[in-house]
Simulated scan of single mutants.
Amino acid sequence: MIPPKKPEWAADPENNLGQVLVLGPQEGKNFYQPVPANGNISVRIAPEFVDIQSPFSIGTQTLPPGGYVREHSHPEHDEALHFIRGTGKAVVDGVEYTIEPGVTIFVGRNRRHMFINNSDAELHWLWFIQPNGLEVFFEEVGRPVIPGEPDPTPFPRPDNVLEIERRTAFAPQPTDQRRPE
């Protein structure tokens, strides 16, 4: 994991200017994810990196073939996802949508959603969530990507995953949680 560089330009409150941060492809905070997603996450912008007036986080996620993001919702968060590579399906409040490059999905607070890679290639997307918190979840359930080290997936979710979800960006898991078909 290569931590983000300190911003080259500090905030300039006198002129109402915020910070600037430019990350290279291998920078950010990068984590492998446990089952059932597997794959990896790259956190690109988060409040711990720069001073953000309205806290949010943004990053990318890659799901291998057969991986899925379990059905969940965010009680106080709005999320936008833009799909870059691969195909699959999204299920939002029980309605299925085809995912392919160029598809963008907005999921407002308390909307149940899941993402499934039912193809033979990786599914890759950009995610944005406001307020932030998702990046903390990814770090706490994941394992750091260390260049040159092998991919540890699949590995189990931590025993305290429900507690991690509760204090980061997730509503309690639904009792009738959908599973991929």
Rank of each mutant, 00 (worst) to 15 (best):
I129F: 00
Q130M: 09
P75F: 10
S119E: 03
L23Y: 00
Q61E: 13
L23I: 13
P154E: 06
A90N: 08
H124R: 11
P47S: 09
D159S: 12
N38T: 08
H74K: 05
I105T: 08
I52Y: 13
P47G: 08
P7V: 15
E76K: 14
N132S: 15
L126G: 01
V20I: 12
F128Y: 15
Q173M: 09
K6G: 10
V145M: 14
I2E: 08
V50R: 02
G142D: 07
F56D: 06
L126N: 08
N30G: 05
E122W: 04
K6V: 15
H74D: 13
V161Y: 03
G108H: 08
T62R: 14
L21I: 03
V145S: 11
S42K: 12
H74T: 04
P36D: 06
V95A: 08
M1F: 12
K5Y: 09
G102V: 03
P174F: 05
G39L: 04
V141I: 15
D12S: 13
N110A: 04
T87Y: 04
A11Y: 01
L17V: 10
E149A: 02
V43Y: 02
L81T: 13
P156E: 07
A11E: 12
V22S: 14
L134Y: 06
W9E: 09
G133R: 00
V141E: 09
V145T: 09
L126I: 11
K29W: 00
P47H: 12
I2T: 14
P34R: 11
R179P: 00
F170R: 03
F170A: 02
Q26E: 13
G59F: 15
V91Q: 07
F31E: 05
L126E: 08
H72G: 07
P65I: 04
R157E: 04
R70M: 13
E139S: 12
Y32N: 05
N30W: 07
L81M: 14
G86L: 01
Y32L: 12
A46I: 05
Q130N: 10
F128V: 04
R85K: 12
E122R: 00
F138Q: 08
I116S: 05
R109I: 04
T60H: 14
V69M: 11
F155S: 00
P34H: 09
G94I: 11
G88D: 03
V50D: 01
I99W: 04
P144I: 09
E14W: 10
L21R: 14
I116T: 01
S54V: 13
Q53V: 12
I41W: 10
D151R: 14
R178F: 11
N118L: 10
F170P: 02
P36C: 03
P150K: 05
P34E: 12
E76N: 15
I45C: 13
P65N: 05
T168H: 07
E48Q: 07
A37F: 09
G67T: 07
V95C: 02
A37T: 08
